[in-house]
Nucleic acid binder design. Structure first.
Length: 588
RNA sequence: GCGCCCUUAGCUCAGAUGGAUAGAGCAGCAGCCUUCUAAGCUGCUGGUCGCUGGUUCGAGUCCAGCAGGGCGCGCCA
């Protein structure tokens, strides 16, 4: 049978239902659910089978429930089945069923929880995708952690996952960045120009004034001396330096982003450059495909409702008919200077990802791009060779001492990822970022993230693992080479032990549900609950010597308890691996 | 004005495909305790699930409307 006990029980319920009332339609059988009961008075599990099929069967829920109960008598897994409430059937399994999961877990190791829900579907998860114009911020950190954990989760659930980073290196902002770096370059050389005087010479003004470009300017000065500057360290003709400075700066920025991601433990498979994409002609080919479908036209958009921008005037543009695919208005593909909009390039990019084989595209974006979702999905649907889902990450407010943190040495107004890592470390960043649904705003409390209390999920879960490892180290001598996957487990009878085993058994279903919902935060909450079950059992051992894991007078019982501890450690590691957090062996 | 997201205990938040008396941590209250190296532990208290309608045997969950908060709204990316 499957390693998912709940799925196994469900199969038996459906079989019993078929026996009780043959011929129920598949869509009714599909609604049969087996869930973990909240209230112990309701048994361990409950099924809604009788209620969901009552109407189709033309029978009262209570009658069906009674028939189900009769049909389940003598079942190998189910010790107790009882009709209850409006038509539930409450179930209690033989304790041996839960115990039997322990060797399964120990043999599977961290692969426990792997499932086939993804059916090998090729999915491309794109995340971070920062403009390479400045340091990574907390906002990027949330997207990075969310995307990375989601990719891990999907891989564990049987999807064929590619992790991707899109480099937006083709827009106007890259030119602006080059100008800003050029200013730091002149500064490094000792120019007498003031920043304001320089800014006056920049087309569109000096946009990036953050100190993070100081090092770039200095590096450029070391590499090229004053050869890129005009006479007297003034601004030379951009034609003579702009491309070189741009490429140099871009390389430096990307190196910085890579370093930050590396520190965060994020390692993506593919880095795609917008410039390279443009050069490849993929964008134009993709737009041509849309044009072939009669979805590209010259037209004039209605003015937006409500407050108009001051300079709004009707203008004919090249538009994509995104309204045909659920968007609110059609969207421009060309700027007035004839170059592509970002949207046009992004259409080409998504087509490229699909062309590489992905049937499912998942983009992890900041909430400020929420207005962009419909048009991008419209474009992907119009092309018809993949499906696009978007996971939006809401903003993160960083708190310290209960006060918002806004200042950063490097970026000026944003808390950088590097600052965050310095402050609390990789594991706390990754875990804490996953303690909220991605589409809910979150407050990241720096003090809480490093506190050693139950309030801090990172600590609480790591501590549980460290305790497991501590017990296992102490037990090593007594094991005497025994295979924990092969020891007698009959001594595991206490309700606290059963509760822990039930939690361990629900890990595969948790993984699958989280993957299908694209909600990696559920893993964090599962681990927190699991840690709670384990700590509770540990604490029981203080009062009740019979519940201590290591018992001098009971070797067989000790082996069973140690197997339970080992399985707990395995599941914690399996969960932390999804989150990209390293388990600790001991607390310091 | 339009679109998307959010609103659950005093606070911070969980609640997969609709299921029974809505959960956890913190705070508060009451006991206990100095540990199988380890965060002290156990229990209790605390809720009109923003509001109003609707669908359903059954709604925190689905639908409609309203209120409050956030984000976005033609050639920025």
């Amino acid at each position: 049978m499957t390693t998912d006990i709940l799925a196994g029980v469900r199969a038996r319920i459906v079989a019993a239902l078929d026996a009780a009332h043959p011929g129920l339609p598949p869509e009714v059988r599909a609604r049969v659910d087996v869930s973990v009961a909240r209230d112990p008075a309701h048994g361990e599990l409950a099924t809604n089978a009788a209620m969901v099929s009552a109407k189709a069967a033309g029978r009262k829920p209570a009658d069906l429930a009674a028939a189900l109960v009769a049909g389940l008598a003598g079942d190998a897994l189910i010790a107790l089945a009882a009709p209850a409430g409006p038509g539930f059937v409450n179930l209690t399994l033989h304790p041996a069923v839960w115990r039997a999961q322990l060797p399964t877990i120990l043999r599977a190791g961290e692969a426990y929880g792997d499932n086939a829900a993804g059916q090998g579907v090729r999915v491309n998860v794109e995340y971070v995708s920062a403009n390479p114009t400045g340091p990574m911020t907390v906002a990027h950190a949330r997207g990075a952690v969310t995307g990375d954990a989601l990719a891990n989760l999907l891989a564990k659930s049987g999807f064929a996952v590619t992790k991707e980073f899109y480099i937006n290196d083709a827009g106007n902002q890259v030119q602006a960045l080059a100008w800003a770096a050029y200013w730091r370059y002149l500064e490094a050389l000792g120019t007498t120009l003031t920043e304001d005087a320089f800014a006056a010479a920049v087309p569109g003004g000096l946009q990036y004034r953050g100190a993070y470009l100081v090092d770039v300017g200095a590096a450029l000065a070391r590499a090229r001396g004053d050869t890129l500057a005009g006479p007297g360290l003034t601004v030379a003709d951009p034609a003579s330096w702009l491309d070189e400075v741009r490429d140099f700066t871009m390389a430096e920025m990307l190196a910085s982003i890579h370093a930050d991601l590396d520190q965060l433990g994020v390692h993506q498979d593919v880095f795609s450059s917008e410039r390279a994409l443009l050069a490849s002609g993929e964008v134009e080919r993709t737009i041509a495909r849309l044009a072939d479908k009669q979805l590209v036209y010259r037209g004039t958009l209605e003015p937006p409702k409500g407050k108009l921008p001051d300079d709004w005037e009707p203008r004919e543009q090249t538009l994509f008919r995104s309204t045909a695919f659920g968007d609110d208005v059609d969207r421009p593909l060309k700027k007035s200077d004839g170059s592509n909009t970002y949207f046009a390039n992004d259409i080409g990019y998504h087509a490229a990802k699909a062309a590489r084989g992905a049937a499912l595209l998942i983009d992890v974006w900041g909430a400020d791009h929420g207005g962009y979702v419909k048009r991008m999905q419209a474009a992907v649907n119009a092309l018809g060779d993949a499906r696009l889902e978007v996971v939006l990450c809401q903003i993160v407010h960083v708190l310290k001492g209960g006060q918002p943190v806004r200042m950063s040495k490097r970026a000026g107004t944003y808390v950088t990822l590097a600052d965050l890592l310095d402050e609390v470390g990789r594991d706390a960043v990754r875990f804490t970022m996953l303690t909220r649904k991605s589409d809910a705003q979150m407050e990241f409390d720096l003090d809480a993230a490093v506190s050693q209390t139950r309030e801090n999920p990172v600590f609480y879960v790591q501590y549980a693992h460290a305790r497991c490892r501590s017990v296992l180290r102490a037990a090593a001598a007594r094991l005497d080479g025994a295979d924990l996957a092969d020891v007698g487990l009959d001594s595991l009878v206490h309700e606290t032990e059963l509760a822990l085993m039930r939690r361990l058994a629900s890990w595969p279903r948790t993984v699958e549900a989280a993957a299908l919902a694209r909600e990696p935060h559920r893993i964090a909450f599962f681990l927190y609950d699991l840690a709670g079950d384990f700590h509770t059992l540990w604490n029981r051992g203080r009062d009740d010597a019979a519940l201590r894991f290591l018992r001098d007078d009971d070797l067989a019982g000790t082996l069973a308890s140690v197997a339970l501890v080992a399985a707990t450690a395995v599941v914690i590691r399996s969960g932390l691996a999804v989150m990209g957090v390293d388990p600790v062996e001991e607390m310091r």
